[in-house]
């Protein structure tokens, strides 16, 4: 059982740093925790170097909280802002090249399935809109076509944040950003529609306005990926730097965007629906 990797050898606890003493004694591993438990346990991610008030950082924190089995989860990320905090989390984090997240996740998922046929291992890609809709597009789509059983979470800040604000495929049409000097000339890529066409089992679109919704969405996405097929969550996580949103206005912006064009949306396959229903029934018993 993987929790052994969190058992301090006898006699060594007193030499361990505080954060590890806390993680071992008050961490989330092997426990069923709810949103309301936040603040009562040591979270997977606390300190990180993302910008102050960044919506993406907030979203990542909640997404990690939602993982149903963090002790059996691997996170795959790539170049982009999200990795700054993901690499600090108490969860194995894989960083390959920019574009390769969904290929790497495929290999990880299949490798783990071979080595641990009786222990479900969750693989979750968490990457930017550029990483998934532009440079990594082909691997995202083909992972879906192949029905690879892992979750893809897009941190959609509608721009290349990490490289200083260039246009991405997910930037809105007409937006003037770097490398789009006269405004973006084509529509935001419809990744939701593409996911549907590719037969993704669970698709969700959301903004960070509602923490419990983030948690339930991510949890569903991970569980369905474990049992049914690929899942995709597209989260609006504004970049306050590139879109000049003052930190205190981040949630206001998210609410506005949610109302105008980023409303909560779930597309669930029949098989995934049946799985969720069975889960619910089991829960009630």
């Amino acid at each position: 059982m993987a929790l052994r990797t969190l058992q301090v050898s006898p006699g060594f606890m007193r030499f361990m740093p505080k954060e590890y003493q806390d993680l071992v004694e008050k961490g989330p591993f092997g426990r069923k925790l709810k949103l309301s438990d936040l603040g009562t346990y040591k979270e997977l991610l606390e300190e990180h170097p993302m910008c102050e008030g960044c919506a993406m950082a907030f979203f990542i924190r909640l997404a990690l909280t939602a993982l149903p089995a963090p002790e059996h989860t691997v996170i795959v990320g790539t170049a982009g802002c999200g990795r700054l905090s993901l690499s600090q989390a108490a969860i194995p984090f894989v960083y390959g090249n920019y574009c390769d997240t969904n290929g790497v996740a495929t290999g990880i998922k299949r490798g783990l399935a071979l080595r641990f046929p009786d222990q479900p291992k969750d693989v979750v890609v968490i990457a930017g809109d550029g990483g998934l809709s532009d440079i990594g597009f082909s691997q995202v789509m083909h992972g879906w076509f192949r029905q690879e059983k892992f979750t893809t979470v897009m941190l959609d800040n509608e721009v290349y944040g990490n490289t200083g604000g260039q246009e991405s495929g997910m930037t809105k049409r007409g937006e003037v950003v770097k490398m789009a000097p006269i405004g973006k000339q084509f529509e935001k890529i419809d990744m939701i529609g593409l996911a549907k066409t590719a037969g993704v089992a669970y698709i969700a679109r959301l903004t960070p306005t509602n923490p419990s919704r983030i948690i339930s969405t991510i949890r569903k996405a991970v569980l369905i990926a474990r049992e049914v097929g690929p899942t995709y969550v597209q989260a609006y996580t504004s970049c306050n730097i590139e879109y000049s949103i003052p930190p205190e206005k981040v949630l206001e912006d998210a609410r506005q965007v949610e109302k105008e064009r980023y409303g909560f949306l779930e597309i669930i396959s029949d098989e995934a629906k049946a799985f969720l229903a069975a889960q619910d029934a089991a829960h009630r018993e």
Binding site: V76, G103, V104, G107, G111, H142
Partner: peptide, 17 residues
């Protein structure tokens, strides 16, 4: 795989496990 980048990336994921 979908292409060489996909194949080589997936191999790198598998090798890590």
């Amino acid at each position: 795989a979908e292409d060489e980048v996909g194949a080589f990336s997936a191999i790198s994921g598998a090798s890590r496990t």
